[in-house]
Design a protein around this nucleic acid. Structure first.
Lengths: 265, 265
DNA sequence: CGTTTATCGTTTACAGTGTTAACTATGAAC
DNA sequence: GTTCATAGTTAACACTGTAAACGATAAACG
């Protein structure tokens, strides 16, 4: 990937293009080195691209700043993978799409544990650098991918969601008031005036996906339920039920099997 | 805490006692320093106790070894906290016990994020040192705490669990064959001959608890559902339903409110 | 075109990390 | 009372992120 270019490469001065190129190469090399047991270091990155470590400071404010940029790049990579999984199924079948994307997310996490940890179990709540911003934005794009699929499913079959009266008062307040900057990844919902219960229910579904994948990645459960994928399958089936997809369980099971099978390439 | 002493302090030579004392002090100091922004380091630990860094190698094989011992200590600390929460309710009310323990787990995690991350989202799959062993054992004790409560609930109300025929074949094989060393924390179940479905259902419940807490700790969800505790409450309510505790929902809600309220001390 | 100037890279240096080797007190043991 | 293992030391090595000062080079301007 090495993406995250707001303006890809239209017409910028030669220097700017070159600068962007090495900027991209930095995070590219860093991500390659991320797989190594001893992890990444500015010196290893620099030497890998024939430079010295202090030179990297022309492109990166600090080590943490670099980490944020790497995280953003990982996000974009992951988003592309999930979109590809989603697009293997027709757009008018968001149930299959969200199932496929979820499975792809899980497979990616298990196959890229270091990257998963960097992005999804990181205490990176520290200072606000330039890099963190791009990281947060990428995270919002990632969230939007799932939330859009979720909303598409809801708009298709209007499954039951909790009514406003069932919601926690504070939560209801936040979800109804449309100063919702804090409702991170849901910019795409802006004009749709969705019931707050839809918002809320999405959090519940997302928490189960995130939680199960994280549990599997860190192995805080018997290995057999990870190896067989039984726990993940069960969780997906449960989420499907709670999204009004019970009738399509058999069909979605096939989708899931397909996406959980090791990719052929 | 600084516990994990198989033989507390019966009658060992003076040297052994002293050795154990500084061993305990090391992890104690390390844990105190864990809260610091720049984290722990052998030198900071040593200087904190008036020593030099290389001296620590008389007690610890390596840095990773130390981390494992810290993790074990954290586990023991956490176990004590959860046991205290559990024991605030009568032993014949495991429903209240598991609810309280779950809430205590969540509160502890949110209040000790560094320690939580060290223990629960750590790639510590590397080499097998002496320290890792004590860490794994502590983890099993931790798991046993929840699984025992879970089994107690089941033995009390015999809630429905999936039948053997519904289980993944590989999973069924593993759960029925009693060479179950891999079924980590369930040594306490040994002689009970529990249906495999009970095992399996415990994994599901545990995955939801672990997943929700981890999600909250790392904030990969709207902050309001964390601050209000709405997501956690909802998840606990769902688990209670799936443990045949629907009738006691109101009673357990009170327990939950109690445990989620900031402890008074 | 030549000169100025900003950019990108260098070398050097500093404080910090985990870790090893060699050496030295000191308390237990024969 | 001598021997000897133990617990500590200092010195050193190979790393880490980072700052300062300096040099080459390419763009920008008169």
């Amino acid at each position: 990937m090495t993406a995250a270019d707001p303006t890809p490469t239209p017409s910028m001065t030669r220097r700017e293009r070159q600068r962007r190129a090495t900027m991209d190469e930095i995070v590219e090399v860093a991500r390659r080195l991320l797989g190594d047991p001893q992890g990444i270091s500015l010196r290893s990155i620099a030497s890998e691209m024939g430079m010295t470590a202090p030179a990297l400071y022309r492109y990166v404010e600090s080590y943490d700043d670099l980490v944020y940029r790497i995280a953003a790049d990982i996000y974009d990579d992951l988003i592309a993978i999930l979109e590809a999984a989603r697009d293997r199924y027709p757009p008018d079948d968001p149930g299959a799409g969200i199932t496929a994307a979820s499975a792809a997310f899980r497979q990616w996490a298990l196959n890229n544990r270091a990257e998963f940890g960097l992005v999804f179990t990181n205490a990176a709540t520290s200072v606000t650098t330039a890099g963190q911003k791009v990281c947060v934005e990428a995270g919002q794009r990632f969230g939007a991918l799932f939330s859009e699929l979720f909303v598409a499913v809801w708009q298709q079959n209007r499954f039951a969601v909790p009514g406003v009266e069932e919601l926690d008062p504070v939560l209801r307040e936040r979800l109804t008031s449309h100063e919702a900057e804090h409702i991170d990844f849901h910019e795409s919902w802006r004009d749709q005036a969705l019931p707050p219960g839809v918002h809320w229910h999405f959090f519940r579904i997302w928490s189960r996906l995130y939680g199960t994948v994280t549990l599997e990645v860190y192995g805080h459960v018997d290995t057999v339920v990870v190896e067989t994928g039984a726990l993940f399958r069960d969780m997906i089936a449960g989420c499907a039920r709670d999204m009004g997809l019970a009738a399509e369980a058999e069909r979605l099971r096939v989708v899931l099997d397909d996406e959980l099978a090791p990719r052929d390439e």
